[in-house]
């Protein structure tokens, strides 16, 4: 019995010694901060003077009364409503086209993938220049075609659309490749049978491809929505950290950043971070539920 105990002790020691480096880093930089943020959201925390006052749920009450929170919320909602459908449908259609017997497939993929690898800082600078108020190429093209002088970077109604375009631009390739690998798994026999029945390409796309891709489409939608909720770099660079003009590019992450650093209010920043976590969790949960029910229906 005793030797068994020793053996077990050795096994534990052996296991934990290999886990230790990872566990230490993960504990200090992931687990402790989660717990700390969870505690802080119930306090008014001033880290400069290190004063903590328990305030219960008042951080949450303040957030929901805060016009900046609602600005971030509606910006993100608009953002999701525009970006997610375009990037999902765009990626799916492109994947189907590339998947049909086409030459230079890998060359085209290589090109389409470049934006995904480009740092958001460089990407934002390029787009800010293309959409520049006076001399930007896109601004000028729109002016030449429609006669409208659009001030993309300073008009509160338009600033967000530049970030939307940028995001669609850099996420389509990634999702395209996700769809592309899923397309390989669709049995060829389905298409052959449809051909025999005289189905055209459009019919095949809507009756075979789309339903067969349903699970992966849900995955893409979930990742797309989560990505939209976490936009930071582009909004920060474009507005110099302000979220302007008139809060029109204020995102959740940018607002959490402002609360933590400009307002020195870690309590409210933590509360907002957990609200964001709850939103992301709910969205993933709903999408997964929808996916399950879809599987049941066949």
């Amino acid at each position: 019995m005793k030797s068994m105990g020793k053996r077990r002790g050795f096994l534990n020691l052996q296991g934990y010694s290999f886990m230790a480096p990872a566990l230490v880093v993960i504990t200090v930089f992931t687990i402790v901060p989660i717990i700390a943020a969870f505690v802080m959201m119930f306090f008014k925390v001033d880290l400069l003077s290190d004063t903590w006052n328990f305030t219960g749920l008042s951080n949450f009450a303040k957030i929901f009364e805060d016009p900046k929170f609602w600005a971030a919320f509606w910006n993100t909602a608009r953002y999701v409503a525009v970006v997610v459908p375009i990037q999902t449908i765009g990626a799916m259609v492109l994947a189907v086209l590339i998947n049909s017997k086409i030459k230079f497939k890998s060359g085209i993929l290589a090109v389409l993938f470049i934006p995904t690898l480009t740092s958001s800082a460089a990407m934002t600078l390029i787009f800010m220049w293309l959409f520049n108020n006076n001399s930007g190429l896109v601004t000028q093209m729109i002016y030449d075609i429609t006669g409208m002088q659009l001030n993309f970077l300073t008009d509160p109604n338009l600033a967000l659309s530049v970030i939307m375009t940028m995001n669609i631009f850099s996420t389509i390739p990634t999702f395209l490749i996700v769809f592309l690998s899923a397309l390989q798994d669709i049995p060829k026999s389905l298409y052959e049978a449809a051909s025999i029945d005289g189905a055209g390409n459009a019919r095949k796309f809507f009756s075979i491809t789309v339903p067969q891709l349903a699970p992966i489409t849900f995955y893409v939608i979930t990742m797309g929505i989560i990505g939209c909720f976490q936009i930071f770099d582009q909004a920060y660079i474009m507005s110099g950290g302000e979220g302007g003009p008139m809060n029109s590019t204020l995102t959740f992450t940018l607002y959490i950043y402002q609360l933590a650093f400009n307002s020195n209010d870690m309590g409210r920043a933590s509360a907002l971070a957990f609200i964001l976590a709850a939103i992301i969790f709910t969205v993933s949960f709903i999408v997964r539920k929808l996916m399950k029910s879809d599987e049941v229906n066949g």
Partner: peptide, 20 residues
């Protein structure tokens, strides 16, 4: 526990990490 950690967004931890 690790699977649960995968679901926590970066925003929850990053500002506390700054304090650390």
């Amino acid at each position: 526990g690790m699977i649960a950690l995968l679901m926590v967004p970066y925003e929850v931890i990053v500002f506390t990490n700054y304090q650390t």
